[in-house]
């Protein structure tokens, strides 16, 4: 199947573009360190970074701001962006469906349910993350099973089943909130589900980074075999791929990455749907290149949006709201441009 018409990007050209986007990400990370509500000049940022402060009190605050506030938040945003985008691309490949994404498959809602249940039972942080993973896995499994029971070739079937699962898990989240102690647990669950990077610290960055880096590495190592899945099960098997095992590994990795982002940032939509499409449009289909590009563009997108969210005004705008406001119309534009025959 074809996702988008791949541009005839010559190898050299693609590599050049990749270098440009990697440099852009590096530049944005540096610029983000200088952005924020606490007034710090670029010079002060650089001095703090290379550890040449004058030991004054304002210097100590600058260190706190750079190393404990901005850096963890930037790292978390990068991990959330890269994680959701790679996961989205992986789901799209493994289900051979351009509309698959963590939100549309119900993974985000499933992870949200798992985590709220763990919070309801007062389980420790690590268990909350594990529960998010199991919930996400249950949602994607149920969506896929339901879709395969519907004897239809339409790409919409999986998306519809995913939306059904998403609705089901949202309802289960409401149920958890309903039985939660209103004075104690309910508030915790509600704030947590709203999701925000406003308080992201080193622990959040690590929580997001471990599954995203590990899952990303596994997917990258398997990139050629995974790309065979896009040809269809028979063709992939004929070319020597263990289709079932491969599919399970991809789903496990993508779901772990999604669950990790849900744990630190709540349910952030549209990134996993939008970014893989843009990456394919710009970088073609070569698996390794498009995967690196997906991660880079995802990180650029979420980091850029979060920069606006945290520094545009006193008011902190929720991340999920901003990605939806930008992502939804942009995705519609892509769909219209891509012409409908590719979406049968």
């Amino acid at each position: 199947m074809r996702f988008w018409r791949a541009p005839p990007a010559a190898d050299g050209e693609g590599r050049g573009l990749l270098l440009v986007s990697a440099l852009a990400l590096g530049a944005l990370i540096l610029a983000s360190l200088a952005l924020g509500r606490y007034p710090l000049s670029l010079g002060a940022v650089v001095e703090t970074l290379i550890g040449r402060g004058n030991g004054s009190e304002s210097d100590a605050t600058a260190q706190t701001i750079i190393f404990m506030v901005r850096l963890p938040r930037i790292a978390t945003a990068v991990m959330v962006g890269a994680g959701l985008s790679i996961a989205g691309a992986a789901y799209q490949t493994v289900f051979r469906n351009p509309m698959a994404s963590p939100s549309l498959l119900g993974v985000s809602a499933g992870a949200g349910f798992g985590a709220s249940l763990a919070l309801l039972l007062h389980l420790p942080t690590i268990a909350v993350e594990a529960a998010a993973f199991v919930g996400g896995l249950a949602a994607v499994g149920a969506s896929y099973l339901a879709a395969s029971r519907v004897k239809s070739q339409s790409l919409i079937t999986l998306v519809l089943c995913g939306m059904v699962m998403s609705a089901l898990f949202q309802a289960l989240i409401s149920l958890v909130k309903y039985v939660a102690d209103p004075v104690d647990t309910l508030a915790t669950i509600t704030f947590w589900l709203m999701g925000s990077l406003a308080k992201a610290n080193g622990a959040d960055a690590a929580t997001a980074a471990a599954p995203v880096v590990l899952g990303g590495a596994v997917l990258f190592a398997l990139r050629w075999r995974i790309s065979l899945l896009a040809l269809g099960d028979h063709e992939a098997a004929a070319l020597g791929a263990d289709v079932v095992r491969l599919r399970i590994i991809v789903i496990l990795c993508a779901t772990a990455m999604t669950a990790a982002t849900v744990c630190v940032a709540g349910i952030v939509g549209w990134v996993g749907l939008l970014v893989p499409h843009i990456a394919r449009m710009l970088f073609g289909m070569e698996p390794g290149r498009v995967m690196v590009a997906t991660a880079t563009l995802g990180a650029l997108f979420v980091l850029g949006v979060d920069d606006v969210a945290r520094s545009a005004s006193i008011i902190e705008i929720p991340l999920g709201v901003m990605t939806a406001v930008i992502g939804a119309p942009f995705f519609l534009f892509l769909v219209i441009r891509a012409r409908s025959e590719q979406w049968s």
């Binding site: 606490y38 506030v69 945290r310 006193i314 008011i315």
Partner: peptide, 20 residues
Amino acid sequence: VTSDGRSEESVTFSLEQLIA
């Protein structure tokens, strides 16, 4: 520090804003 003549009831901000 949050007094800006706003008409909304509440205002949400970042940790960095609090430090600033």
